[in-house]
């Protein structure tokens, strides 16, 4: 009497037939199939099954089906054109939101002129701080997006922009003329979560990476005069602020939590404004 393979053996035999086992295990299975009658019987069963299904033909589509589909598609509204840039737009969009979140958060919670300027502490970071970013209210993100969204809107209505955000970038989704807050309110919960995640992912990056992304984004939008001008206006302060940090201060930024990092950037902006070094 030939024994039946165990579930695990059957799983491996099935994967072996598909060429999906790691080499070492594949060799072991091959040896079993060569020597063991239980494995040989199971292998024959799978081969018979495979042979029976080989003959299962699918009918060919009607010759004009492709033509009809294309004609029907022509009657649909043209989807939004996506402008792909040389850098990941999602990351670039996050870059824009990043600071925006920080700005909005701090200006909401402290007001722009009420927080005393403090020097950035150098040295090792304090104990790990709890990840506060996921709890940032969406209104803060909205305010930030209003300030920093720069990509020209390729879409012709909110619906299409909202589509874009699920697989594209925040900029593509929110780059229109309608009030950003209204547009944000019309996004689905999933889309809003996606936008927040983009912002949070950026906040967790190393400041040098953030700056590189911002620079790359600036280069990317440089191909479009309007986008370039908008970007320059909106990002100039950030570049000035970042450039004002010493290497030691940048290290402190790097070690800070995202929320603290944003706070430090905003404080420095206020400081530079007071000094007249920034408009």
């Amino acid at each position: 009497m030939i024994r039946t393979l165990t579930q695990s053996e059957w799983d491996d035999l099935s994967a072996w037939i598909d060429g999906e086992l790691p080499d070492v295990r594949a060799d072991e299975v091959a040896a079993r199939v060569a020597d063991d009658s239980a494995w040989q019987q199971a292998h024959r069963q799978l081969q018979d099954l495979d042979a029976a299904l080989d003959a299962w033909e699918a009918p060919a589509p009607q010759v004009d089906l492709a033509e009809r589909i294309i004609a029907e598609a022509r009657t649909q509204r043209q989807p939004a054109k996506i402008i792909r840039l040389a850098i990941p737009l999602t990351a670039a969009a996050a870059a824009i939101v990043l600071i925006a979140v920080g700005v909005a958060t701090l200006e909401q919670t402290t007001g722009p002129e009420t927080t005393p300027d403090k020097p950035i502490a150098a040295g090792p970071p304090a104990a790990a701080k709890p990840p506060v970013d996921e709890t940032i209210p969406e209104t803060f993100v909205v305010q930030g997006v209003d300030v920093f969204t720069v990509t020209p809107a390729p879409a012709d209505d909110l619906h299409t922009r909202a589509d874009a955000i699920t697989g594209g970038s925040l900029c593509e989704a929110l780059g229109g003329s309608q009030s950003t807050e209204e547009r944000w309110a019309q996004l689905s919960g999933e889309q809003q979560d996606n936008a927040r995640q983009q912002a949070m992912a950026f906040l967790r990056m190393d400041p040098d990476e953030q700056q590189t992304l911002l620079d790359d984004y600036a280069k990317a939008v440089a191909e479009d005069p309007e986008a370039r001008q908008a970007w320059q206006q909106r990002s100039r302060w950030l570049k000035v602020v970042i450039d004002s940090f010493t290497a030691q201060e940048k290290q402190a930024l790097r070690d800070a939590s995202p929320a603290e990092r944003a706070r430090l950037i905003i404080r420095r902006r206020q400081q530079l404004r007071k000094q007249g070094d920034l408009d």
Binding site: E72, A73, P79, D163, A164, G167, G168
Partner: peptide
Amino acid sequence: QEVFLRVYRYAPR
């Protein structure tokens, strides 16, 4: 046909 119309509509995603 509906599959390809979805491809058309979902292209931005």
